[in-house]
Design a protein around this nucleic acid. Structure first.
Length: 217
DNA sequence: CTCCAGGTTATAC
DNA sequence: GTATAACATGGA
């Protein structure tokens, strides 16, 4: 993996606030990263509290809390280009508001339980749950397998395989990469996207999952 | 126009 | 158990 490592020195894993992370990744399914960032910005602009911003930037808004989104209603969420993900995000917000999902308690659970708790939300499957575990809760063994990581694994580790079941890749990732698999996942992600020309070859290595909560220009 | 995008779910063999 | 379509929206 030397090529990937060389092209990405200084890579870090984020520790995002759990709700923002969960909500952002719920918005992420079958969306391009640039569009996910757009959705997050729209949600912040529509429902988030203003925060202090430099004069040369546009108005900044914090990512809206679960209560703000729960009371927004599905139609208002759809207006932020969420499409079929709107009811998913709404379900997540309502669960957090009424306590069925306690994001603080999730942080104290063993990883397997935490994963199940996250996946109780409609629209949260294995990949999104693993992203939240890795990017919000710091579970460095979490190994989110998205379309890019799947390609990287298939190409680098199973070049002969005709068809790779998700469960097969999941099992391989845990036994092969172990407790710091999350870092390996990030390098694989960056490597395969770099090679595909989807990201510039800058060595800044700022691999951001969804973009954060800024609403500026 | 067709295909794909940091997936998940419902439905049918 | 496994396979496939549908889900909104926008960009390539």
């Amino acid at each position: 993996m030397r090529a990937a490592v060389d092209a990405c020195r200084g890579l870090r894993l984020l520790r995002q606030e759990p709700w923002e992370c969960l909500a952002s990744f719920i918005c992420s399914s079958t969306k391009q990263i640039v569009q996910i960032r757009q959705i997050v910005r729209e949600l912040a602009g529509a429902f988030g509290e203003p925060v202090a911003a430099p004069a040369d930037r546009g108005p900044l808004h914090a990512f809206p809390g679960p209560a703000a989104l729960a009371s927004a209603g599905e139609a208002a969420l759809r207006a932020c280009r969420l499409g079929f993900r709107a009811p998913y995000l709404l379900d997540a917000a309502e669960r957090v508001v009424d306590g069925r999902l306690d994001l603080e308690a999730v942080g104290r659970m063993p990883t397997v339980e935490a994963r199940e708790a996250l996946m109780s939300v409609d629209g949260v499957g294995p990949k999104v749950a693993d992203c939240v575990l890795l990017f919000a809760y710091g579970r460095q063994d979490a190994f989110p397998i998205d379309v890019w990581v799947r390609r990287a694994l298939a190409e680098l580790y199973f070049p002969k395989a005709r068809r790779l079941r998700p469960e097969r890749l999941a099992r391989f990732s845990t036994v092969h990469f172990g407790p710091y698999g999350g870092y390996a996942q990030q390098y694989l992600f960056h490597h395969i996207r770099l090679r595909a020309g989807r990201v510039g070859p800058t060595p800044t290595a700022r691999v951001t999952p969804t973009g954060g909560s800024e609403d500026g220009r």
